[in-house]
């Protein structure tokens, strides 16, 4: 794809400032990422060790999975977060699924029952989002907000706002298992990303999903059952919340209240991800980079001994910077 973009500039043989500016902005995101990585590598002791790198990837797995879910919703419903689609219930949903899983394990049901139950719960919540947005035509911002309240409330009711510890062999494998020197959680991120990149960027379904999100009338005119795709995006988002909840429980060995607070980092990752794509649209690869970027940023701060209280402020400033640059780039 990049080669195609370079072509007009070189064939014309003169310095095309527009293409240059576009490229500079596009590569700017990568350059900023690389620059910050190099800065941490030089200043933060232990940043470049394999152990630390894998640790960050592990930490980013959960954020990555949930941000993928948000990205898919963005792709299928348009990037205008206000009028288009958004799924505010993702984080609360993951918290609910974790609670369902942990409570079922506590009650003595095995993994074979508890895991499908957790993922099923996520998909049911996703279905309700679809019901609100597609069937009842409530604004996504509002419909998913109501669903978020319900999910958060049910989670609190199930766990009574306490930590529900979980112990099982699967959890040990997920949390401590290693294969080819890479931990299970990191493998999950790698495999999940590859599968999703294939599904979204190299399959018919993905192409149609982009069509639905890009211009829903045109997609409908072209014969796509748009409602089914939007429903699908929300149910998939719920599915991912369910999968992520298993990883959350394995990482913390318990279901803990407060998963809902992940909503903002998830939004940040999914939105930041758009700057890593050529046309500033949500992509799986972009979201993956953004999730890693946020992970490395937090990790680097920690190693440099900078107070963690700065992290959210830096994330906020980053979002603003990214969006400003993007809107500037789109105009030129």
């Amino acid at each position: 794809m990049t080669a195609v973009e370079h072509a007009p500039a070189t064939s014309r043989g003169w310095f095309n400032s527009k293409v240059f500016a576009k490229l500079a902005i596009r590569l700017g995101a990568f350059a900023a990422f690389a620059g910050i990585m190099i800065y941490f590598a030089l200043t933060a002791r232990g940043f470049t060790t394999t152990y630390n790198m894998i640790n960050v990837v592990e930490q980013s797995t959960i954020l990555g999975f949930l941000a993928f879910a948000m990205t898919v919703v963005f792709i299928g419903t348009g990037t205008d977060v206000q009028k288009g689609g958004i799924d505010l219930s993702i984080a609360a949903n993951a918290g609910l699924c974790a609670a369902v899983y942990a409570v079922m394990m506590r009650e003595g049901y095995g993994n074979y029952v508890a895991i499908p139950a957790a993922i099923g719960t996520g998909m049911v919540i996703g279905f309700f989002n679809g019901l609100a947005v597609v069937t009842l035509k409530i604004m996504p911002l509002l419909g998913t907000l109501a669903v978020m309240n319900i999910a958060a409330g049910v989670e609190l009711t199930l766990t009574e706002n306490t930590v529900v510890p979980v112990q099982s062999d699967l959890m040990t494998v997920l949390a401590f298992g290693r294969f080819l020197g890479i931990s299970t959680l990191a493998w999950c991120l790698i495999i999940g990303s590859v599968l999703l990149v294939w599904a979204i960027h190299y399959s018919k379904i993905g192409l149609r999903l982009y069509a639905v999100g890009g211009h829903i009338e045109a997609a409908r005119a072209a014969g796509i059952n748009t409602g089914r795709y939007v429903y699908g995006a929300y149910i998939f988002s719920g599915f991912m919340a369910g999968v992520a909840s298993i990883l959350i429980v394995s990482r913390l060995s318990s279901s803990t209240p407060g998963t809902g607070l992940m909503l903002l980092p998830i939004l940040a990752a999914a939105l930041l991800g758009t700057v890593f794509s050529r046309r500033f649209i949500p992509t799986i690869g972009g979201t993956l980079l953004a999730a890693l970027f946020i992970g490395f940023l937090a990790n680097g701060f920690q190693l440099l001994g900078i107070s963690s209280y700065w992290v959210s402020g830096v994330q906020g400033a980053l979002i603003l910077l990214v969006v400003t640059v993007t809107s500037f780039a789109k105009k030129h």
Partner: peptide, 27 residues
């Protein structure tokens, strides 16, 4: 001035506000 969509602009301010409060109250 920066032409940021209100949702994203105020989302950014929400993040920054959280940091300001944590920094001025020892977390």
């Amino acid at each position: 001035k920066l032409k940021i969509n209100p949702f994203l602009a105020t989302l950014g301010v929400l993040f920054i506000g959280k940091s300001i409060q944590q920094l001025s109250t020892q977390g």
